[in-house]
């Protein structure tokens, strides 16, 4: 029983990481209609930006989070302005190829700047709290923080989408692009804000992943498949669905280690995604097929 509870915690931590990535993927798909394949490497770059920031100023590991979020928001907008904007007028699928190339560019940049060895934010082990009232289950403070902060970020995205003009404009564009454009919604502004949010959340996901495990140039790329699985499960183009999708995929991946070798964890995400594509491709929350 304790084992299952323990895996549930790990699953929710992984689910928080996936949710942060999947919200961005889902929003970008909703507005720009393409699957953003560089999102995993946005996460990687964010994690490393955070690392440089804290080591430059000698700060504790959680300071990596704001640095990564701000840095990736700026970089995402920059990449969009320099590259994606130029090919946006053609078919969306050309953007898909460009983003695939961008993924490799970012990954090789990370390798060039930071090298390809494993790195960590802090050396040493963090002692978990032992929760005797939950059958002696262990909980690391970092894990608790990851879950709480992502809860806060999700709430922030929710408030933005429902309470602000720009957020409403974004939902309108995602629901019906043509109708939104003829009613005078500033498309370029909305696209820019989409990249700011998507980039910032990807940066957060990267830092969470780096705090939970370690930093490595392919950390984001290997997380991309579960992130897509989460976005599809929730209904691609639906940010709220991404939350449900992220948690379901994260918990299933961790729970699966009870039954199958841990090396096949990504296969679980993939299997759920394939099952979803066969049975209900629009996702739980009816996204854009």
């Amino acid at each position: 029983m304790t084992d299952i509870l323990q895996l549930l915690i790990y699953g929710l931590v992984l689910g928080s990481v996936l949710t942060m990535g999947a919200i961005g993927v889902s929003m970008i798909f909703g507005i720009l209609r393409f699957a953003h394949f560089a999102h995993g490497d946005f996460m990687t770059l964010g994690a490393y930006l955070g690392l440089s920031f804290i080591s430059a100023f000698g700060l504790s590991s959680w300071w990596a989070l704001p640095a990564a979020m701000v840095g990736m928001a700026v970089i995402a907008v920059f990449i969009d302005q320099v590259l994606y904007r130029r090919i946006r007028r053609t078919q969306p699928v050309i953007l898909l190829i460009a983003s695939f190339g961008m993924a490799l560019i970012l990954r090789s940049l990370v390798q060039l700047i930071w090298g390809s060895d494993n790195q960590t934010y802090t050396s040493g082990i963090q002692f978990p709290w032992q929760l005797d009232w939950l059958g002696g289950m262990r909980l690391k403070p970092d894990h608790l923080w990851i879950m709480l902060i992502s809860l806060g970020l999700v709430a922030g995205v929710h408030l933005f989408l429902t309470r602000t003009r720009l957020g409403k404009a974004m939902r309108a564009m995602s629901d019906n692009m043509d109708l939104a454009l003829v009613s005078g919604i500033p498309a370029e502004r909305v696209i820019m804000v989409t990249w700011v949010i998507g980039g910032a959340l990807a940066g957060a996901a990267g830092v969470f992943l780096g705090i939970d495990t370690r930093l490595h140039p392919v950390m984001g790329w290997t997380t991309l498949l579960p992130v897509f699985a989460a976005a599809i499960l929730g209904g691609i183009g639906r940010p709220y669905g991404a939350i449900a999708g992220g948690m379901i995929i994260g918990v299933s991946m961790e729970m699966s280690t009870l039954l199958i070798p841990a090396a096949y964890k990504p296969a679980v995400a993939f299997a759920i995604m394939v099952g979803m594509l066969i049975l209900r491709p629009q996702g739980i929350f009816k996204g854009t097929v």
Partner: peptide, 13 residues
Amino acid sequence: RLRTDYLAIASIG
């Protein structure tokens, strides 16, 4: 039967 983005994601999987 799906949009090609899904093929892209499924094929990388």
